[in-house]
Write a protein that binds this DNA or RNA. Structure first.
Lengths: 156, 156
DNA sequence: GATTTATTGGCAGTATATGCCAATAAATCA
DNA sequence: TGATTTATTGGCATATACTGCCAATAAATC
């Protein structure tokens, strides 16, 4: 599916503020509300927009600790992978997880209130038999957070 | 600021769908629209809600490659830190960045269309004189993406 | 240049947001 | 406990926004 300049403007605006009303978007992209809404719905239906999320202040909801966790596995058998990933899905402190190239197998982003809370997460990970090694890298300071994805140059 | 059960329900709902209308939220938390809207505005003003974002499908906007980049610095002098972080802010392919404990100084999340595109990012990083070492860990598969932050148990 | 196709703008009806006020519920204090 | 204060709620009226439909315009195709 092709995205024209107007679509990109809409996406750019919505990345900045996901709750902009259609009327506001329409005004900013110089369209009347109805075609603008049609574009928005199409972007949603095509799956270009995957969803809308609300960013919370982690300190204020007592999840001030962020840890990047590198996991090395004993093996990569299908069963180990499946069980591990199921466990990950069940741990709500793990907010993102990817398999990665390099010396580790998985990179997780984990949130916690404090060290004690984080320790409980690590304990759970340690209980998983397919996990060989766990390295915790604590986020000390967030320099850039959830920046918008760079949409290729749009002349606006 | 204290969050009661209703506030948490609102936050939970908005993490799942950041574009829910106030009317829908109100219905789901068993409030009439006006007190619900007041709560929402308060959560925004208190900074508990930092903002609303739209999640885009990275493949579909031709940013299918995600790389976690570990950066080691030559030194940690104030000037080096400042210049490095300024450079990071200026690179829109870098969507998150943190200082971390462990052997690396910074952990970045970088998006790119392909290896060639990614190479341009690495080149820019290499040009920075305070950067000593760059390790790229390519995300091979995303297992869990931007999961909602776990709000402490709410009896709903 | 004519025809098809895609996109737009306007309109009407419906739904939603917002500010205000009275009523209710909760908390505080005598 | 009972009275008073405080916080929170629900309802109403108005303004704003969403949505589907149709005609008009613009773009693309032949």
């Amino acid at each position: 599916m092709k995205l024209d300049v107007t679509d990109r403007k809409i996406l750019k605006l919505l990345q900045q503020d996901g709750r902009l009303s259609n009327a506001e978007i329409a005004e900013q992209v110089a369209l009347s509300p109805s075609p603008c809404l049609r574009r928005l719905r199409r972007l949603e239906q095509e799956g270009i927009i995957e969803g809308y999320q609300t960013q919370l202040n982690r300190q204020k909801i007592d999840l001030g600790m962020t840890v990047f966790v590198q996991i090395k596995m004993h093996d990569h058998h299908a069963a180990s992978v499946k069980n591990f990933e199921q466990a990950i899905h069940g741990m709500d402190a793990v907010i993102t997880a990817s398999t990665v190239s390099g010396s580790a197998d998985y990179l997780l982003e984990v949130v916690a209130s404090d060290l004690e809370d984080y320790d409980r997460v690590v304990s759970k990970l340690q209980e998983l038999k397919m996990v060989r090694e766990i390295e915790s890298n604590f986020a000390l300071r967030r320099v850039k957070t959830a920046a918008p994805l760079p949409l290729k140059r749009l002349s606006d």
